[in-house]
Amino acid sequence: MKRSRCFPAALLAVTALSTFNAAAQEPPLIRFGRGFAAEEQVWLMSARPELTPNQGKKYQLKQILFQANPERFQAFLAGELDGGTAPGLAVIFARARGVDMKIVASVCLEAAGREWFSTTYMVKDDGPVRSAKDLKGGTVGVVGIKTATDLWARAGLLNGSVVPDKDAKIFPMGFPGMGDAVRTGKINAGTFVEPFYSAEMARGGLRKLFTAVEAVGYDHELLDIWFGEKFLKAHPDTVRAFLADYVAVTKYYLANTAQAKRDLHKAGFVRTPLEIYLKNADWKRDPAARVDVASLDKLSKFMLEKLQWLEKPVDVRQMVDESYLPRQ
């Protein structure tokens, strides 16, 4: 009788101990908030895990899709995310509001040059708008309020001495409807990113007014990787291992773009028809994932001084920490 009582208790203790040991041996989980555009290297880390030797050994990666930045940051504030991707300007906003996060690596940049894609503002080909000046009294379609597309639109308007909100409306709408909205005159200019840019150019009837780089006047960070400061302090080696893999995947992506795109398409990260996706021009990506801090600094000053989007200056250099990236 005594033996029969002891046996289940012993079994329970052994099971509990082995579970505890297994949990203790498991590498830390990174809960990573991702977006749905221009983050190919990040997606590739989940689509092709064999390219990331540290994954599963030094960290586990769980990517969670978010449609917009505020929701991503709210999830972070609620303790549901450890890090993620976000436009540099969104992190500037978040830092200005006291969110404890840091940019640790670059994903892609808006850069001038024929070999890179830069977000393009287009107007009706046979319409009266020839320059940003002609947008006075008009409407510019952007994908969201206080997003990068909003910033570039405002910068472009200001270049033509058109005061946003006063002389011209900024109107949020989805990328898919932007082309027809411009063609039918519902809006006077629209924001186009790939693959919509290529699709609309193929349809014809639209022409470029300015690009994001032309609007602000310099190459600048588009998307970055950020982590919460608490997570960075608690798991520095985990972040280093993650970024080592990330840089390796970035280099692989740049060297094997077509194959990587095929893999991402197959894994369901991209829904654009494959033949169009393969032809699309890509954003500039730094192979070492280094952050163009000076461009973020310029953007934050523009947001503060010209757009009044910030109530006080943000110390961009305090916001970026590249020490977790592999040494070059």
Partner: peptide, 12 residues
């Protein structure tokens, strides 16, 4: 509604 989304985008 626009004001709500503007405040949300500003993390206010």
């Amino acid at each position: 509604g626009y004001q709500v989304i503007y405040a949300l985008a500003s993390l206010k």
